[in-house]
Simulated scan of single mutants.
Amino acid sequence: MTTLTLVQGDITLESVDAIVNAANSSLLGGGGVDGAIHRRGGPAILEECRRLRAARYGGGLPTGQAVATTAGALDARWVIHTVGPVYQRSGADPGLLASCYRESLKVADSLGARSVAFPAISTGVYRWPMDDAARIAVETVRGMETAVEEVRFVLFDERAFRAFAEQVRTPYGGGQGPSPES
C-alpha cells in the first residue's frame, strides 16, 4: 500500500525520486511551482523540456497528461510535468485534475520511482478550490494501483496543509494520516 505523507513547505527542497511539477502546457517554465522548479533545478530541465516540445509536444503538453525530464540540480532523479485544468466560475472537469495525479503516477511507475512529491495541482493561478482539489488528489492517489511506496503531498501554506490533512484522515481507501514530518 502506498503511504501518504504531508509536508508544509517548498517542494523544490524535497528529497524524493520524482517531483511533480504543476506545469503550464508550454513546458518552458512559468510562475508558482513551475517557475520555482525550473529556477532551482537549473537549465538541464528547460533543455529537456525544449527537446520534448520539438519532438513530441509541439502544441504543448495536453491538460491531464504527464511527462518526465531530468531533475537537474534538485534532490530528485526526475521531474514529472503535468498540466492541471483551469477552474472557471462554472467549474471544471474534475476528471482532468484526477488525470494529472493518475498520469503522473503512471510515469513514476514507468521510471521505477518509489517516492513522489506532489504539489496541490491547479490550486494557484488556475484557481481550483483547495478543499475540492485536496479531495480529488487524495481519492485519486488512494485509488491507484502503483508501485510508488510513498506519495508526499508538499503543501505551500497552512491552508493547503489543513485541506489535505482533512482528506488524508478520511477513511476512504484506508490511507494513513499526516506523517510525523507534518
Rank of each mutant, 00 (worst) to 15 (best):
S115K: 05
A137E: 06
D93W: 02
V154G: 08
G112L: 11
V138Q: 03
I121S: 02
A73I: 01
G84S: 13
A120D: 06
R114K: 14
V107H: 14
S104L: 14
D157N: 15
T82E: 10
P129G: 04
W78K: 06
A163H: 12
A163N: 03
R162E: 10
D75G: 01
P171H: 14
G72Y: 05
G91W: 01
A147F: 03
M130S: 14
P94H: 13
A160G: 13
R135K: 12
I80P: 04
L105G: 11
D157M: 10
D157A: 00
L74W: 11
M130D: 10
T123P: 05
V154R: 10
V116E: 04
L155H: 12
L74V: 02
A134V: 07
G84A: 12
I80R: 12
P119Q: 03
L105H: 15
A165G: 03
I121G: 05
P129A: 05
E149C: 06
M144N: 00
G143K: 07
G72K: 00
R89S: 09
T140P: 04
P129T: 04
D93R: 13
R89I: 01
L97Y: 11
F161V: 00
R102E: 15
L97V: 00
G112S: 04
V116W: 13
Y172R: 14
Y87Q: 08
P85R: 14
V79K: 06
R135T: 05
K106I: 15
V151M: 00
R159M: 04
R162P: 01
E158C: 00
L74I: 09
L111T: 10
R159W: 04
E139Q: 13
T82N: 08
A73D: 11
V107F: 14
R89A: 09
R114G: 02
R152M: 08
G173Q: 03
Y172F: 14
E158R: 09
T170N: 13
G91Q: 00
G175A: 15
G112D: 08
R142L: 09
H81P: 10
E166S: 14
A147W: 05
A147Q: 10
G173D: 06
I80G: 07
Q88Y: 14
F153T: 05
P85M: 12
A120E: 01
P94D: 15
I136W: 01
G175Q: 15
A120K: 03
A165F: 07
T146V: 07
